[in-house]
Amino acid sequence: MTTPTATAVKYLLEIQTTLQVRPRFEGSNINTWIGFKHVNYLVEEAVLEHFRNAGLPSRELFEEYGLGVDVVDLDTRILHAFHQDDVARAVVVPVTKDGDTAFGFSVTLYVERDGKELKAVTSKAKVSLRVDDYLAAVPVPAELQRFAVARLGSGAERSVHHGAEAAPAANTALSAGRGTTGADPVLEQLLAGANAFGWKWRIPYPYCHFNERLALSGYLRQVEEVVDLFLADRGISIKTLLDDRKWIPVVPRSQIQFLDEALMEEDLYTVFTVEEVFKDFTYTARTDFYVVRDGRLVQTATGRITHGYAVFENRRDWSLVGFDERVVRALNGEPAAG
Results as ranks from 00 to 15, higher is better:
151 R>I: 01
19 L>H: 03
62 F>H: 09
117 E>A: 07
32 T>G: 02
131 V>S: 03
102 A>C: 09
336 A>V: 04
6 A>M: 14
258 F>L: 10
121 V>W: 10
254 S>P: 03
321 V>C: 00
4 P>L: 10
201 W>I: 11
167 A>H: 14
297 L>M: 04
186 V>F: 07
110 Y>C: 07
116 K>W: 04
200 K>H: 12
178 R>Y: 05
186 V>P: 08
333 G>C: 02
311 V>L: 04
1 M>E: 11
273 T>Q: 04
110 Y>H: 14
170 A>P: 02
164 A>M: 10
337 A>K: 14
209 H>S: 09
279 K>W: 08
72 V>A: 12
94 P>L: 06
31 N>Y: 04
166 A>D: 03
330 A>C: 11
155 G>Q: 14
259 L>I: 06
163 G>W: 13
78 I>C: 08
278 F>Y: 12
113 R>L: 00
60 E>I: 12
140 V>E: 10
215 A>D: 12
159 S>N: 12
148 A>L: 12
122 T>Y: 06
136 A>M: 12
212 E>V: 03
265 E>L: 01
306 T>L: 08
108 T>W: 01
337 A>D: 04
117 E>P: 02
198 G>H: 04
266 E>W: 00
38 H>F: 15
251 V>T: 15
251 V>K: 11
178 R>Q: 13
262 A>V: 02
181 T>M: 11
200 K>G: 07
263 L>V: 04
118 L>Y: 03
160 V>P: 05
241 L>R: 15
289 F>H: 05
3 T>R: 13
67 L>V: 07
223 V>L: 15
75 D>T: 06
4 P>N: 12
248 I>R: 01
298 V>R: 00
157 E>D: 15
218 G>A: 03
10 K>N: 15
274 V>T: 02
164 A>T: 11
15 I>L: 06
61 L>W: 09
244 D>V: 10
103 F>Y: 12
137 A>S: 14
245 R>A: 06
64 E>W: 08
266 E>Y: 00
7 T>S: 11
263 L>T: 00
90 A>K: 07
86 D>V: 11
152 L>G: 00
130 R>L: 12
227 V>I: 11
164 A>K: 14
163 G>H: 09
229 L>G: 11
298 V>S: 00
291 V>G: 00
262 A>W: 00
290 Y>Q: 07
261 E>P: 00
122 T>P: 02
104 G>H: 08
104 G>F: 08
262 A>D: 02
108 T>C: 11
324 D>H: 14
188 E>V: 09
238 I>Q: 12
278 F>D: 09
24 R>G: 05
41 Y>N: 13
151 R>V: 01
184 D>S: 12
204 P>S: 13
210 F>E: 02
230 F>R: 02
160 V>M: 10
303 G>C: 09
179 G>L: 05
70 D>H: 12
28 S>A: 14
87 V>S: 07
306 T>D: 01
220 L>T: 09
116 K>Q: 10
210 F>C: 04
209 H>C: 13
26 E>N: 08
210 F>P: 01
207 Y>M: 09
255 Q>D: 09
160 V>L: 15
181 T>L: 04
79 L>D: 05
337 A>S: 08
305 I>N: 11
30 I>Q: 12
265 E>I: 03
208 C>V: 02
231 L>I: 05
79 L>A: 10
145 Q>P: 05
179 G>C: 07
304 R>G: 02
45 E>P: 03
75 D>W: 07
326 R>G: 04
119 K>N: 11
53 N>K: 09
202 R>K: 11
20 Q>C: 06
230 F>Y: 06
28 S>G: 10
